[in-house]
Amino acid sequence: MSHTAHIPSHRKPRRSASKMALRAGVTGGVLSTLAVAGASGAANAAEPVTQTIELPTLTTDLSSQVAQSADATQQAAANYQLQAERDEAFANAAKQAKKDQAAAEKKAEAKKKAEAAAKEKAEREAAAQQAASRSSERTTLSTASAPAASTATVAAPASGSVGAVISFLRAQVGDAYVMGGTGPNSWDCSGLVQAAFKQAGVDLPRTSQEQSTFGTPVSLSNVQVGDILYWGGAGSAYHVGVYIGGGQYLDAANPSKGVVIQDLSGYPASGAVRAL
Rank of each mutant, 00 (worst) to 15 (best):
H3Q: 10
T4W: 11
P8H: 08
S16G: 15
V26M: 11
N44E: 12
A46F: 13
A46V: 11
P56A: 13
L58I: 06
D61G: 12
D71L: 12
Q75F: 08
A77S: 11
E85V: 10
N92C: 06
Q96E: 14
Q96W: 09
K98G: 15
K99Y: 11
K99R: 12
D100A: 15
Q101S: 13
A104G: 08
E105C: 02
K107I: 04
E109D: 15
E109F: 12
A110G: 04
A110H: 06
A116L: 13
K119A: 15
A126N: 13
A128P: 00
Q130K: 14
S135L: 07
E137P: 00
R138N: 03
R138Y: 04
S150N: 06
P157L: 09
S159K: 06
R170T: 02
V173P: 01
D175F: 02
G180M: 06
S186C: 09
V193Q: 01
A195I: 03
A196E: 00
K198H: 07
V202H: 02
Q209E: 07
Q209V: 02
E210T: 10
L220A: 07
S221N: 14
Y230V: 02
G232A: 11
G233E: 10
G233K: 07
V240G: 04
G241N: 02
Y243M: 08
G245C: 09
G247M: 10
L250Q: 00
N254C: 08
V259P: 01
Q262K: 09
S265M: 04
P268W: 08
A272M: 06
L276R: 01
L276Q: 04
